[in-house]
Nucleic acid binder design. Structure first.
Length: 294
DNA sequence: GCCCAGGTGAAGC
DNA sequence: GCTTCACATGGG
């Protein structure tokens, strides 16, 4: 090899109907942090800086890149948001959520990082999930060359976490989630589960397989299916979405979680997971100042 | 101090 | 089948 550089350290993509701030700050990915007018983060083994200007996205990396497919895949740049939103139910709640969060997108994250992240997410606030994952990456990830003052790290591999001790994991402040992450890392590293094979399975089969892993229940499985594997029908129901469904669709009525589960699975259409993300973000950031009339 | 946080698993009816 | 509870840790 001559070492001749092919490609470029920066690239520009046209953006339409894409709100990067909301997308990177909507509780689906936990490693992005604000950097000047944009964001810094890590995709696979690359440090990345993203800045939006009008209708374009400017991407900066450390090493020259020839093929940007990995970036377009992660950010889902080719998704037509109009087509997605057209599939949503035509009700007041969805209209209000779309009006408030227009441009919010779903990412397509690396499966292991997504799985490990959501195992760590249970009964934690998003800000704390970020802290745990940052600590885990600094302690167990590989340092990555980056164009920034603060060092960047890859997300630690299942092999690395499998060979760590549970106590070392607990040092990252993950508490009772440590044995779950440790056990699941060992299963993945040992080949007991092949995450990549889930891409080719029906939703129900893939979900059942994920739920066999320690620390993975219905909610975590649905998050991974939606945010990593692209199953658009997966509809994670957490405390926020439960609250959103109750307030927006069944006000002043006693509705059991099982009924809401059925409602979620039958009402929201082919991009139900996308609709779920709009409801989640709408309720979480909208707080008291929601658009929906009461 | 108290309550809650993008839940799960195990034990008790 | 359900309902209830423990599980670490930190923020409001």
């Amino acid at each position: 090899m001559t070492g001749q550089e092919i490609g470029s350290r920066t690239a520009t993509f046209s953006l339409r109907d894409y709100d990067l701030d909301q997308t990177l700050n909507s509780g689906q990915a936990f490693r992005w942090r604000p950097s000047g007018e944009g964001w810094e983060g890590v995709i696979e083994e690359r440090w990345v800086r993203l800045v939006t200007r009008q209708d374009s996205l400017i991407v900066e990396t450390f090493a020259p890149v020839e093929d940007w497919t990995w970036l377009k895949e992660y950010l889902q740049l080719d998704v037509n948001l109009d087509k997605v939103i057209t599939t949503f139910p035509k009700d007041e709640a969805m209209r209000a959520a779309v009006a408030a969060c227009r441009g919010l997108r779903l990412l397509r994250q690396p499966p292991w990082e997504c799985l490990a992240s959501f195992i760590l997410s249970s009964t934690k606030q998003i800000v704390q999930i970020r802290q745990i994952i940052a600590a885990l990456s600094e302690r167990f990830g590989d340092p990555l060359p980056a164009c920034c003052a603060t060092p960047a790290f890859s997300f630690p591999s299942p092999e690395t976490l499998a060979s760590a001790s549970e106590e070392e994991l607990r040092a990252c402040k993950m508490g009772f989630r440590a044995p779950y992450l440790h056990a699941t890392a060992r299963l993945v590293a040992g080949g007991k589960i092949d995450l990549v094979s889930l891409f080719h399975q029906p939703l129900g089969d893939a979900r059942a397989r994920l739920m066999q892993l320690p620390g993975v229940g219905r909610k975590v499985a649905d998050c991974v299916l939606l945010f990593a594997f692209g199953f658009q029908a997966a509809f994670p129901i957490d405390v926020w979405v439960l609250k959103a469904l109750r307030e927006l669709y069944f006000p002043q009525r006693k509705v059991q979680p099982k009924q809401l589960r059925h409602f979620a699975d039958t009402y929201f259409g082919s991009c139900a997971g996308y609709a779920q993300q709009y409801l989640f973000h709408y309720l979480r950031v909208g707080g008291a100042k929601r658009i929906l009339p009461d």
